[in-house]
Amino acid sequence: METSKITGDRIKKYLSEGKRFDGRKPEEFRNIEIEVGVSKNAEGSARVKIGNTEVIAGIKMNMGTPYPDSPDKGNMMVTAELLPLSSSRFESGPPRFPAIELARVVDRAIRESKVIQFEKLCIEKGEKVWTVFIDIYTINDDGNLLDAAGIAAIIALKNSKIPKYDAKEGKVLFGELTKDALPLEKEIPLSLTFHKIGDNFVVDPTREEEDVAETRVTIGSSNGIISSMQKGGCESLSVEEIGNALDMLEGVWKSVSEKIKKFI
């Protein structure tokens, strides 16, 4: 179901007075619930619920060959599926743009922050390195899948153990995990999206709010250092407006990290 114009107009009118339908402030997230180890055959997994939005991320690893330009570093691949189970808007079939963008935005936030210590995932330079697969699935879409997916991915990584590897036979013993955690840096990146609705920015939009947002900008950052960005939507932003979003970043980053700190 699409959000009607009349609802959209009301959302904008409310926001001009700093109010939202569910009583939140513009910079306030919904309640976040997290569960880890939700899929035990994965190297690590996490379920993240933000309000009624729910996403599951799982990590699998396999031994592969490195890319020629990084012979001593592991690889990473992020995929996302907008499951038809999670919304009447999503259809079966090959991934369309929103699923591809979701995966790429999460990929960039993780890759550019250098949170995964890829050099420690090298077994034999130029020959054998671990590939980390981050697969994201939506379970219920009530807006802000972008941020939910980013949080789920990072918490799943944080909970991953490296599989056992039989060096003699040259094969991964799938299903058997070592006690070694996936090597990560201390500073965890969060990708947070600022949506412009009318003349105001909000974070963590519900489905209705996201529908009426003209444009958005996703910022991947850890502790004040910004390492990835993506603007989406076909409206422009003024220099002042992008400045406003950046001014909101620190506060939102802190409040979200506080909500998920038990898991990172």
Binding site: S39, N41, G58, K60, T79, P94, D135, F174
Partner: peptide, 17 residues
């Protein structure tokens, strides 16, 4: 439509039918 999540098994399945 039946679908297994890629990480639901020990040996990752490629997403898709």
């Amino acid at each position: 439509e039946y679908n297994m999540l890629s990480f639901s098994v020990t040996d990752r399945i490629r997403p898709g039918p």
